[in-house]
Design a protein around this nucleic acid. Structure first.
Lengths: 110, 110
DNA sequence: AATCTTTATCGTAATATTGCAATATCAATA
DNA sequence: TATTGATATTGCAATATTACGATAAAGATT
């Protein structure tokens, strides 16, 4: 085996898992951090910013894009990547919701 | 290769990546969902709840525990797993912070 | 003590991820 | 049009993840 059994879970669970997985690598977290920092959508000095070879960075960008966390527009011979707010909003509200529930329950086991 | 180059990233980036990675599988999202739903720290009917074999569930629980997302206490011959608020708070504030920054920048590229 | 119940571990097969060198692509510029 | 610069793709090696059957461990029950 080795393949995730996605079909047995709800769409929502799969959606969160996909987004979380995309952020499950420090390089990809670093890319998001960088895109937030340079508040214009500066393109890929990302390669210079990261301690990884260009093909590796390109691959990480692709994964972030597939997951919907970033979008990229061609702009001449470079590409302008930027954060896709929708995906991050989804994550934000997911965790905010969890925090609310945890606050309410306030059980003291474990 | 194939091993993540964690040493090149910041502690914070690695910390977020570790937590996100732990949620990067629908079964583990489902486990968190379940622990939230049963508002007592009910133990492992989790196995019955999930479409996976017991050793597989046990492995997923171990990963959530290693990442710090859940904690488990032995209680007789069963184990009481429950959500570790600290980790979820960390995620919640990470994404809340991102949302705030996105709100502020409101750039319209891409 | 023998058995049951619950959970963990081991071993292993299938598959996915990570990383990079080499190469391709393609728009801009000389 | 030949070259440069930015990005993507291919191919491959190393490693990690996912899943589960078999088995182990250990408290509870008979």
């Amino acid at each position: 085996m080795g393949a995730t059994k996605t079909e047995h879970f709800t769409d929502k669970q799969n959606a969160i898992a996909t987004l979380a997985k995309a952020l499950g690598h420090p390089a990809r977290v670093a890319i998001i951090d960088y895109l937030l920092k340079v508040d214009a959508c500066i393109c890929s000095d990302i390669v210079n910013e990261l301690p990884l070879a260009q093909p590796t960075v390109s691959q990480h960008l692709k994964e972030l894009k597939n997951a919907g966390l970033i979008k990229g527009d061609i702009e001449g011979n470079t590409i302008c990547y930027c954060i896709d707010e929708k995906a991050l909003d989804k994550l934000q509200s997911y965790f905010a919701n969890i925090s609310t529930k945890l606050e309410k329950n306030k059980k003291d086991c474990c």
